[in-house]
């Protein structure tokens, strides 16, 4: 096809479009997150009361860490859907934040009575159940981010898919905190970490297929 006829065809096909707005994408993701939280409380999967917060000293650490990781990586993932946005440096900051969050968990776990009987503390059966719940809770934000990425034009797919996966995974884990009865930092770092890694790997394979342009 020559240039003239291609351009004629494109001009003929032209329809008004509304430019993509970053804050609209943020609002969509916030709405999806809020809906998911509402639903898991509505169906009775999650419950949250002050007694549990007192009984589980790691709840605050989990909620703050996961919300921070999800929000920051989600923010940069959405920004990266703009083709002119350069992600350089932001991934390093996010990895540093994740490392600090994990380090704080290790600190909590190393308190008296800490690292003995590791195998017993990991509680494999419960751990696998926790990881599968987190995986499921991560799917809605993962799909939403992937679809927003498809509508956008990410130019740094390698970093974008990492951020999308991390944000969705951290959100899934954050939502699961409200249903998780376990308090041992070793258990949490292991099983939450495993499920988050799986979601990041899933995003790594899924996103290029959905959002490639």
């Amino acid at each position: 096809m020559n240039y003239e006829s291609l351009i004629d065809q494109l001009a003929e096909d032209l329809a008004p479009v509304r430019p993509r707005r970053f804050w609209v994408d943020v609002a969509i993701m916030a709405a999806i997150g809020a809906t998911e939280l509402f639903l898991i409380f509505a169906i009775g999967f999650a419950n949250f009361d002050m007694q549990r917060i007192r009984d589980q000293p790691t709840v605050g650490w989990r909620l703050v860490s996961l919300a921070t990781i999800s929000a920051i990586s989600g923010f940069f993932a959405l920004r990266s859907f703009d083709p002119t946005y350069a992600l350089k440096g932001s991934v390093r900051w996010i990895v540093a934040i994740v490392a600090v969050c994990i380090a704080y968990g290790v600190f909590l776990g190393s308190m008296p009575g800490g690292w003995s009987a590791i195998e017993q503390r990991l509680e494999w059966a419960n751990g696998i159940e926790c990881a599968s719940h987190i995986l499921l809770l991560s799917i809605p934000p993962l799909i939403a981010l992937a679809l927003l990425g498809r509508r956008g034009a990410p130019t740094d797919m390698r970093r974008t898919r990492f951020l999308v996966g991390l944000s969705a995974a951290a959100w899934g884990a954050f939502a699961f905190v409200f249903a998780c009865p376990f308090n041992d930092p070793l258990f949490i770092i292991t099983w939450y970490g495993l499920s988050c890694t799986l979601v990041v790997l899933l995003a790594r394979h899924l996103l290029p297929r959905i959002a490639r342009w």
């Binding site: 240039y3 291609l6 494109l10 430019p19």
Partner: peptide, 16 residues
């Protein structure tokens, strides 16, 4: 070049 023209068309909503 032609591929980019088509891409500009498909992704024109990403222009701010």
């Amino acid at each position: 070049a032609q591929e980019v023209l088509m891409t500009l068309h498909a992704k024109r909503h990403t222009y701010d």
